[in-house]
Nucleic acid binder design. Structure first.
Lengths: 338, 338
DNA sequence: GTCAACTGGTAAAGCGCTTTATCAATTGAC
DNA sequence: GTCAATTGATAAAGCGCTTTACCAGTTGAC
């Protein structure tokens, strides 16, 4: 049986108001005697407030929405777990949704969440997000009426975000490869409209340029950040005998490539030097541990949460951007060219 | 700006009731003319119903809670993604929470969700769940007032669940190892109160017994299903020269072991035959692809969802249990003993 | 012309809680 | 003894929507 305030009030012989006041620890002149009593009864009856009703009257839910393109990507998994925990520490509850890497999914999630009364939203946008009509997106955000922050992405729109310096990251990765004598460096890119993917691509090109290595279009391959796409790309890449190193826009696509190689019996680690992106946990357990670009997801998340909570608390911050420097994690997958 | 039904009613010069009736496609005698008009206006005003209000009056939320011990475990990640998608296909929205592998987390999540008006809950219990006071658990479930189904777990309590046949799975795994000549088979177990973990342990013992191999307590090591615990256990296991094969209660702990070995430069794949549990995606990309027990998470989830939705729809099903047969996936990590 | 049946629509109560304005009883200052 | 201030508690309105009961006007059968 589910009890409400009314039941408690009846049992304690007081009014509904009194119960509400007491259970919410409101400033009031209820005698401590009654306070004790009411709290006691509430506990006994295992009272749980009906959030819908609370939300309806308070207009505050202590709920935050989190939208992620693909929970299966370990980078997002870690991020999700961290945010969940961090938010709980701050007294918030996380509504999580996997957008299925589609703008439609994101839009529905946002509308759903808003209509469920979240106080704010953390959005890790999919690649589709950036190819959506910009006016529509801005309208969606405005009409939400609650703060929405982009995570792991940048934008020209009037939206707050926290992101990594992807250009820098990709340049570092490229440099590392060049420093080991590689010149024919393949690049596995993500979809171009995903700003992060694009930036990494630019970083790769910049890295080449600063070493006076000519950019070669035939060495770049396009995936969609999924492991599956790396798997699909594998045969094409392997067809190029001149390639000695691979830089991938994320670890996951490299994993796909590795999976294909395992199946085909090709010794990919011997054939290529490789650098990934994201410093995903599994980089450490594969055959030769992967050199990768680390993006401190915890720091990014913490910053974003701080920013969001400030906005929720009504500090009328202007739109803000935070950009975090990535780190190169050297492991064993980059070798000097033979 | 956020508009409500009242605004629409005003604009359309009709009553609130009419708007509600129309927008919910209720059987009513509103002229098609007005229907059109109202829908049109609603669209223009970008109307989104306030779920809290709807929930409050309808008492149905089309929300399902999903609680998982550790989203970082790829087995749960896949499960979560699948459930999210499947539920959305059925018109439901998923409230997801990572319980942090603790009973407290689960309890809070359940209460939170109930108070948020979910229509039902899917719970993948942590190991702590089973060491909690049984009366309290039953009380928690009863007082929720909504159906809760256990996923990936069994119990004697009067609670519905869908689970795998863990004994069977562990027996198959053990048999596979024995068939390759192994007799000194280490077992990495999970916490005993986690029923699944216990069952796998029993399966291991049964597998040994049916091959007349004496059970040796010194060959069993206890972790907690996390990668980290496998990592911790590694040095102890490596100290046993007689061990030729390892059966782990899940893939993740094996990954931890592998990580440690990589760091220490020991060639673990050469030293041991290994079998995991869960058929996690990363089993395919590690140095030597892992033989493992596959548990069809999609099937389990689909069954659980079907069961839950039936209960929600008010079919007064009795408590039901579903047990799914696991499969052995042969890859390369089991070799004949030298 | 009358009355029943239908048509198109609305008023009002209720969902469970918060919050403000108000009330009755007591206290204390003079 | 009077009046203002204080104390302890409550009534009632409101949050945005659903739903039931009801109403006024029109038709049509006889």
């Amino acid at each position: 049986m589910k009890y409400g305030m009314k039941d408690i009030a009846k049992r304690a012989n007081v009014s509904l108001t009194t119960v509400s006041l007491v259970l919410n620890n409101k400033e009031s002149r209820i005698s401590t005697q009654k306070k004790q009593e009411i709290k006691q009864i509430a506990k006994e009856m295992n009272y749980q407030p009906n959030s819908a009703a609370v939300l309806l009257s308070k207009q505050i839910s202590y709920n935050i929405g989190l939208i992620v393109p693909d929970i299966t990507n370990p980078f997002f998994t870690e991020l999700t777990q961290f945010i969940n925990r961090k938010l709980r520490e701050n007294g918030y509850f996380t509504l999580f949704v996997d957008s299925g890497n589609s703008y439609l999914g994101e839009k529905q999630a946002i509308q759903n969440m808003i209509s469920r009364g979240v106080d704010g939203i953390l959005l890790v946008p999919s690649s589709e997000f950036f190819s959506a009509d910009q006016d529509e997106v801005e309208h969606l955000f405005k009409s939400a009426g609650k703060p929405i922050i982009l995570l792991n992405a940048s934008t020209d729109m009037d939206i707050s975000y926290v992101n990594f310096d992807n250009v820098e990251g990709a340049m570092m990765a490229t440099q590392e490869l060049v420093d080991h004598g590689h010149r024919k460096i393949a690049f596995i890119k993500g979809k171009d409209h995903l700003v992060n993917a694009h930036e990494r691509y630019q970083g790769y090109q910049a890295g080449l340029r600063q070493n006076h290595i000519p950019f070669d279009q035939s060495l770049v391959f396009e995936g969609d950040y999924s492991g599956e796409s790396g798997y699909q790309l594998a045969p094409q890449i392997l067809k190029h005998p001149e390639i000695t190193a691979i830089l991938s826009s994320n670890d996951l696509m490299l994993f796909g490539l590795i999976k294909w190689s395992k199946e085909q019996g090709v010794d990919i680690f011997n054939r290529f030097s490789m650098v990934g992106f994201d410093n995903t946990p599994y980089t450490e357990i594969i055959e030769v541990p992967l050199t990768t670009i680390d993006q401190d997801a915890d720091k990014m998340s913490a910053d974003a949460i701080k920013m969001l909570l400030r906005k929720i608390k009504g500090k009328r911050d202007v739109t803000r951007q935070i950009v975090i420097k990535p780190k190169l994690i050297r492991r064993k997958s980059v070798k000097f060219i033979k």
